[in-house]
């Protein structure tokens, strides 16, 4: 019917009454939009005022920053290449040991915090809150405290990564344990398996792939974390980076940044391959 009509003003008015949404944004949505946008604008103004950010400091700083970036080129190691590689090794070692021990501590804690393993609500809540509190403190803050306790060097970084990873992984593990398929547990029970055997034959085969792929993700993110922990004195390449920035040796700073980027990219690729191999094909699993 509409096709036979010519499109004229009357038709448009008619359609506007029939389907108002096609012509105007609904009143309610418009109000939400107004509130959201004005809220964002007000918050921005408040932040700029409270943080005392003004155009002059930005302008001056950008000039200084580009001067600095100009001095980045060409990146050189300035004869320090062996020290840099050793520091990068420290970073990788920190990430490896931190993830490994975090995983080893997280597995039993994860089982303890899973509702279907330990049915006690008190243990469940206490453990979960405990994990949340530890996770709430950033790895960098833990690293600062461990530098105070254990002194400068990679050991403080390893401890910081272990602490945060244990809590985070335990939480993830507990969740994946709670989500297992119960039919396999019943199957194991029906053959007369004891509690340990049920965990070994009903839980482990289901949760192990999830655990391993999580651990590999954590290793990747820990390599990133470990590369900056050194800024606070916890060993690794970050320490070298911090020293170079302090003495304003920009070509070496740039060299170290490039080194970090390459290492992270390589580790990501390797870990992706391992994850594909291990998680997808059970036959490659040790």
């Amino acid at each position: 019917m509409i096709q036979t009509k010519n499109i004229n003003r009357d038709l448009i008015t008619e359609m506007e009454i029939l389907v108002p949404e096609a012509f105007h944004i609904p009143e309610k949505q418009r109000r939400y939009r107004f509130i959201t946008i004005s809220g964002i604008v007000i918050l921005t103004v408040i932040s700029l005022w409270k943080l005392q950010i003004n155009p002059f400091t930005i302008f001056f700083g950008i000039g200084k920053f580009f001067q600095m970036v100009m001095m980045f080129f060409p990146p050189t190691h300035g004869g320090w290449i062996s020290e840099f590689i050793y520091a990068m090794g420290e970073t990788l070692a920190m990430a490896f040991l931190g993830t490994l021990f975090g995983f080893l501590f997280a597995v039993p804690l994860g089982f303890l915090a899973a509702k279907n393993i330990i049915p006690s609500t008190i243990i469940h809540i206490v453990l979960r809150r405990f994990f949340d509190v530890i996770r709430g403190i950033n790895t960098l803050i833990w690293a600062l405290m461990f530098v105070n306790v254990a002194g400068l060097g990679p050991f403080a970084g390893i401890m910081a990564i272990i602490i945060t990873d244990t809590a985070t992984l335990a939480k993830l593990f507990a969740e994946s344990i709670e989500n297992v398929d119960t039919s396999q547990i019943d199957g194991a029970k029906s053959t007369g398996a004891g509690p340990i055997q049920i965990i070994r034959y009903a839980f482990i085969p289901q949760v192990l792939p999830i655990m391993l792929s999580n651990v590999l993700y954590f290793f990747e993110s820990n390599v990133r974390a470990a590369s900056i922990l050194g800024i606070l004195g916890a060993g690794g390449i970050g320490m070298q980076l911090y020293d170079r920035i302090r003495i304003m040796n920009w070509p070496q700073v740039f060299f170290i940044i490039i080194m970090i980027l390459i290492t992270v990219a390589v580790i990501d690729t390797i870990s992706k391959e391992i994850r594909k191999a291990i998680v997808a094909n059970p036959e490659y699993r040790p």
């Binding site: 005392q52 700083g61 600095m68 960098l140 900056i228 700073v253 940044i257 970090i260 980027l261």
Partner: peptide, 24 residues
């Protein structure tokens, strides 16, 4: 994305001096 926040923060603290601006 690849350079961590803390590394940017270190560089920006140098250019913009101490305070919230380099953090932002």
């Amino acid at each position: 994305r690849a350079v961590p926040e803390m590394v940017y923060a270190l560089l920006f603290v140098f250019a913009f001096s101490l305070g919230p601006l380099p953090g932002v």
